[in-house]
Design a protein around this nucleic acid. Sequence first.
DNA 1: TATTGTTATACTCTATAACTATA
DNA 2: TATAGTTATAGAGTATAACAATA
Lengths: 143, 143
Amino acid sequence: MGFPLDSDPAGAGDIATEAWGLLVPLVYPPRFLEIAREFGVTPPILGAIRSLDQPRTMGEMAELLSCDPSNVTGIVDALEAKGLAERRPSEVDRRVKAVVLTRKGGRLRERAMAAMRKPPAWLEGLSEGDQRTLRDVLRRARA
Amino acid sequence: MGFPLDSDPAGAGDIATEAWGLLVPLVYPPRFLEIAREFGVTPPILGAIRSLDQPRTMGEMAELLSCDPSNVTGIVDALEAKGLAERRPSEVDRRVKAVVLTRKGGRLRERAMAAMRKPPAWLEGLSEGDQRTLRDVLRRARA
DNA sequence: TATTGTTATACTCTATAACTATA
DNA sequence: TATAGTTATAGAGTATAACAATA
């Protein structure tokens, strides 16, 4: 949501609060939703594609997507209907199904992941010095 | 989604890409969803509460929430059912209804907005120098 | 006639519970 | 009996179209 509502009176809080207030409109709403639209898939389907860096069982997908296994059935149905993935019954345990991307699905995945990795315009617009500074601060934040 | 999947081989891209890769897991999934859960409301309802910094007509709310006006009916129904807001028919144009927070709704709004303004732990954990550096870089990003 | 908000309806996303087919 | 996946079902969130009240 791009809200013009919750502007702090500016300077009311501390430095961290001000930094957070600056960061929020730069990262929300999430790129993920926009990329899903660009690629003509729903967010759950894009999430599923993202999870298929390698063949995954339905159960593994449910785990990675933090959703109930019953949902994965429908999501993989949609992937199959779009020709993006296939179910492959396991040969060792016939209860299990592996989901694998088709070539078309793999190509879409590569392009979509590249879009997700690509920094947004506000970041690319920073000077190289500022980019480096930001990277270094975020490295320390992660630690 | 907290994904262990799309780790760049580390160093494959430029500085901006690396900075973005560090930032993404720090800001997604959005705090907004977590705060909605904490306060016992759904995300659309929290969005509506956020929009009610002042009395708003149903149409204004639809605009601010980027959703169809028909949805606002149900959302405001839910706000009324929870005792958080009330419809006030306009006296000048009886088609129009203003939505205003109750005292209870106003209190919830204050606390929820404070939670949204509060910087996440990773940011509060930075040294004051790093916080200041980050703020300054983000100020330049916004410009 | 045009506008504000509501209702009717439909589709997607999500979860729980019951079911199947294997193990 | 236990497990992997599916189906049945229900509820929330969203949209479009038709409608009622008012302008």
